Simulated assay, not measured.
Amino acid sequence: MAHTATYSREGFGLSARIVNFFERIKEANALRAQFNQTYSELQSLTDRELNDIGVRRCDIKDIVRDHVYCS
């Protein structure tokens, strides 16, 4: 069985963990902002425009979530 050692940039100290915590908060806020912008843009489209691109209004939230968080 092979074992690999992975080193992260977080380090082991408390200060490194605190910095990492705030970086994750910033990243989460950026993703949330992207989600909100994309969601509002799709919601602003008419039903006809959504039909043209093959999107149902009830699927917008799922589509945006997949696009932002799973990409």
Results as ranks from 00 to 15, higher is better:
Asn29Lys: 10
Met1Glu: 10
Asp62Met: 05
Asp66Gln: 11
Thr6Tyr: 09
Glu23Trp: 12
Asn29Gln: 13
Val19Glu: 07
Tyr7Thr: 12
Gln43Ser: 08
Tyr39Phe: 08
Lys61Glu: 14
Phe21Pro: 02
Leu50Trp: 00
Ala30Glu: 15
Arg57Pro: 02
Glu27Asp: 11
Ile25Lys: 03
Glu49Arg: 10
Leu50Gly: 01
Ala16Glu: 09
His3Thr: 13
Arg24His: 13
Ile60Met: 04
Ala16Met: 03
Val64Lys: 00
Ile63Asn: 02
Cys70Tyr: 11
Ala2Gln: 07
Arg57Ile: 07
Glu23Asn: 14
Lys61Gln: 14
Leu31Glu: 13
Arg32Gly: 01
Lys61Asp: 15
Leu31Gly: 04
Arg48Thr: 15
Arg48Leu: 11
Leu42Met: 13
Met1His: 09
Asp47Phe: 01
Leu14Asp: 13
Asn36Gln: 11
Gln43Pro: 02
Phe22Leu: 08
Gly13Ile: 00
Ser8Asp: 11
Arg32Lys: 09
Ala33Ser: 13
Asn36Ser: 09
Val68Ile: 07
Arg65Val: 07
Ser8Cys: 11
Thr6Gln: 13
Leu45Ser: 05
Asn29Arg: 10
Leu50Met: 04
Val68Gln: 01
Cys70Ile: 06
Ile53Asn: 04
Val68Gly: 00
Gln34Pro: 02
Phe21Leu: 13
His3Cys: 07
Asp62Val: 03
Tyr7Ile: 14
Val55Ser: 03
Thr38Val: 05
Val19Asn: 08
Ile25Leu: 05
Asn36Phe: 07
Asp59Cys: 05
Ser40Met: 11
Arg65His: 15
Glu49Trp: 00
Ile63Gln: 03
Ile63Phe: 06
Glu27Leu: 14
His67Gln: 12
Val68Lys: 01
Ala2Asn: 09
His3Lys: 14
Asn36Val: 05
Asp59Asn: 10
Tyr7Phe: 15
Ser8Ala: 13
Glu23Gly: 10
His3Asp: 09
Leu50Asp: 01
Ser15Tyr: 10
Phe12Pro: 08
Gln43Thr: 09
Gln37Trp: 06
Thr38Gly: 03
Ile25Arg: 05
Asp52Phe: 05
Ala28Val: 03
Gln34Tyr: 05
Val55Gly: 01
Arg17Trp: 11
Glu10Ser: 11
Ile60Glu: 00
Leu31Lys: 15
Ser40Asn: 13
Val55His: 01
Phe12His: 14
Glu27Ala: 13
Gly54Ser: 06
Val68Leu: 02
Ser71Tyr: 09
Leu31His: 08
Val68Cys: 02
Cys70Asn: 12
Lys61Ile: 08
Asp59Glu: 12
Asp62Ala: 10
Ala30Lys: 15
Arg56Gly: 09
Arg57Trp: 04
Gly54Phe: 01
Ile53Thr: 06
Arg65Ala: 12
Asn51Val: 06
Ile63Tyr: 05
Ile63Asp: 02
Val68Phe: 02
Ile25Thr: 05
Arg17Tyr: 11
Ile53Trp: 05
Asn51Thr: 09
Gln37Ile: 07
Gln34Cys: 06
Arg32Leu: 12
Gly54Asp: 04
Ser71Asn: 14
Arg9Glu: 15
Arg17Gln: 14
Asp62Pro: 02
Thr38Gln: 10
Asn20Trp: 08
Arg65Tyr: 11
Tyr69Cys: 09
Val55Phe: 00
Arg9Ser: 15
Asn51Glu: 15
Ala33Lys: 15
Ile60Asp: 01
Glu49Asn: 10
Gly11Ile: 00
Arg17Asn: 14
